[in-house]
Design a binder for these strands. Structure first.
Lengths: 128, 128
DNA sequence: TCTATACTTGCATTATGACGCAAGTACGCA
DNA sequence: TGCGTACTTGCGTCATAATGCAAGTATAGA
């Protein structure tokens, strides 16, 4: 191998898809599904902007849907890791999981950037 | 006003929700809906890992659904700004919009962090 | 101009998700 | 132990989305 090492040719999409990379683990549909519905997004924004733990009843006052619907959306958001639920007596306080959320978003951004050929992504190799 | 300026008490969720903040503009359900379906996610990962423009036919080889389904998902991904479509003759090449995607994710992470009380988020004020 | 290729679109079917109501559970307090 | 509050869960209905087939459009090349 005396030849100068050149960038490998990009793989076919089929080859690329078969290879497991960082973004496969990061692109979780369940996570993004949390943010994919207007009602849920407004609940997240409500809790985030409030900046403290909010009860289901308080949050339900912010939107026009039924209390039970809010309860279900909040439970889903907690399951998908966007919110955290803490029970105090009869009341459940929801807070945004800021640290985990920000980390997830940034890690995904980094992983995507690694795929970008213009940013030195070695997609012909194995970084993605 | 000779009193020492103290952190304002957090607003009620209702007050917080009524106030418009950066994250309201950033949490677009349509954007996240793109990532909320397993088939779409695998298409995105396929194109990203491939690292070059991929045709609909090539991408369709990577997953088990019908060609027409792939075509529709790709069109949706292009509409929501995740992919870019470029037509060369009869062939449409899809690429990941790395820069815009990474930027969106990081801006959102920053905005969320601004809401976090522990990170100095002034949610009792008007940053969120 | 004809044909093959590459993709899109219309349509019917099926699956999933959102919603509201009502009933149920959990918990604090008298 | 009984009652009220805070929330969850079961269920039926409706809306949206996903899917596959078949037909349609666009374009390159013979």
């Amino acid at each position: 191998m005396t030849q100068v090492r050149k960038r490998k040719p990009p793989p076919t999409p089929r080859q690329a898809a078969a290879r497991d990379g960082p973004i496969d683990a990061l692109l979780k549909p369940e996570f993004f599904k949390a943010f994919s519905h207007p009602t849920r997004v407004s609940l997240i924004a409500c809790v985030a902007k409030c900046g403290r733990g909010c009860s289901v009843g308080e949050i339900a006052e912010c939107c026009s849907v039924d209390f039970s619907v809010v309860s279900r959306h909040l439970a889903l958001l907690a399951r998908s890791g966007v919110l955290e639920a803490k029970k105090h007596g009869r009341t459940v306080f929801y807070t945004v999981r800021y640290a985990e959320l920000c980390r997830s978003l940034r890690v995904l951004a980094d992983a995507l950037e690694q795929c970008c050929p213009e940013k030195g992504g070695t997609c012909g190799g194995k970084s993605c």
